[in-house]
Amino acid sequence: MSATIHRLDPTRPAPSLEPMMSLVAADMNAVNAVILDRMQSEIPLIPELAGHLIAGGGKRMRPMLTLASAKLLGYTGNRHHRLAASVEFIHTATLLHDDVVDGSDLRRGKRTANLIWGNPASILVGDFLFSRSFELMVEDGSLKVLKILSNASAVIAEGEVNQLTAARRVDLGEERYLDIIGAKTAALFAAACKIAAVVAERSDGEEAALDAFGRNLGIAFQLVDDAIDYVSDAGTMGKDTGDDFREGKVTLPVILAYARGSEEDRKFWKDAILGFRASDEDFVHAVDLVRATRAIDDTLARARHYGQRAIDAIAGFAPGKARDAMTEAVEFAVARAY
């Protein structure tokens, strides 16, 4: 399989997650059973609210990466099933908290839990899922796995706080923004992949390679999400086009467009990020600016760069269905914007 991310040959099929989904389908059934079992509670609101998001149509990318990484290593046990469920609980908990912090109304095309049940319930059920994830880690019995996943949880929280302190700062800068998404998004991708090498009892070098794969894929994934907000629609994103813009989020397209814009353009961006320019007409103008400054093109170019680094990170593993599927998953993550 080609390692080229941006497929230029129109005769080739578009990259898909299907190979990875097929690769891990049986394992994913086992993971889903763990998730369904562990989200239960005698308090009815907990499974009701958790189920709204967990059953909300997400691709389960992070637990799939744990399973695919285990396949890549030839692991034949079943410890990774509970750990993949733990990864998904961490992710779901962070989404519940994110939507409260961001005041979001839509997630994966559905109303957010905080809009339906309120902020206190969303926060507390997120805490419940975090606790469930740690129960699963402890049951696995590996201090190394516990260290990797607990560290990832702490880093995600740090990334959230970093983003909060940088909120509505249009002069944020690319380096700090990459630090934020490296923590908020990429840390869990990296941990999801790395723990497979631990349960498979592989070398430190293989752990590092899978960590690098997940980390670079996570950054590429987030950068594409940033770009899609200005070029796509709710059918692609599961949220309304321009949500990031209307919420005053400073993402890489905005950072680049602001840095490259005229004095008048910068004034527009400052007003927009502060919430003073949030109409449909303002969003159309914002799209014009990110296109005119090549901010979208360059955001996607960076996404391809990190995607290629992810692919390169697993080049040393044995060729086969698992490596091909993981490679195509990277290509899919980047191709969503085209």
Rank of each mutant, 00 (worst) to 15 (best):
A3P: 10
T4I: 08
R7T: 11
L8I: 05
D9I: 02
A14D: 13
P15D: 03
M21L: 11
M21R: 13
L23Q: 09
A25H: 09
D27L: 03
A30V: 10
N32G: 05
V34S: 07
I35D: 03
L36F: 07
R38V: 08
M39K: 04
E42D: 08
I43E: 09
I46V: 09
H52F: 03
L53I: 03
I54W: 04
G58Q: 01
P63Q: 02
L65G: 02
T66H: 06
T66V: 12
A70S: 08
G77S: 09
H81V: 15
R82L: 12
R82P: 11
L83E: 01
A84R: 08
H91I: 02
T92G: 00
L95F: 00
S104P: 13
R107L: 00
R107A: 00
R108H: 00
G109D: 00
N114G: 04
L115H: 14
L115A: 08
G118A: 14
N119C: 03
N119L: 08
A121Q: 12
A121K: 09
S122F: 01
S122L: 04
D127C: 04
R132C: 13
V138D: 13
S142L: 08
L143S: 07
L143A: 11
V145W: 05
L149C: 13
N151D: 14
A152E: 10
S153F: 08
S153Y: 15
V155E: 10
I156Q: 07
G159W: 04
V161F: 12
L164V: 15
T165H: 11
A167E: 15
L172A: 14
R176V: 13
D179Q: 09
G182K: 04
K184M: 04
T185M: 06
A187Q: 10
L188M: 01
C193L: 01
C193M: 02
K194P: 01
A197V: 05
R202K: 15
E206P: 07
G218K: 06
I219N: 02
A220F: 10
F221A: 00
F221I: 00
D226K: 01
A227F: 02
T236C: 13
T236S: 14
T236E: 11
G248L: 01
I255T: 03
G261S: 10
G261L: 14
S262E: 05
E264T: 15
D271L: 12
L274K: 13
G275P: 02
R277I: 11
D280C: 07
D282P: 07
V284G: 08
V284M: 15
A286S: 09
T293Y: 03
T293I: 04
T293P: 06
I296E: 15
A301L: 06
G307L: 01
Q308M: 13
Q308L: 08
A313H: 07
I314Y: 05
A318I: 12
K321V: 10
A322N: 02
D324M: 07
A329I: 03
V330T: 05
E331A: 14
A335C: 09
A335H: 06
R336H: 02
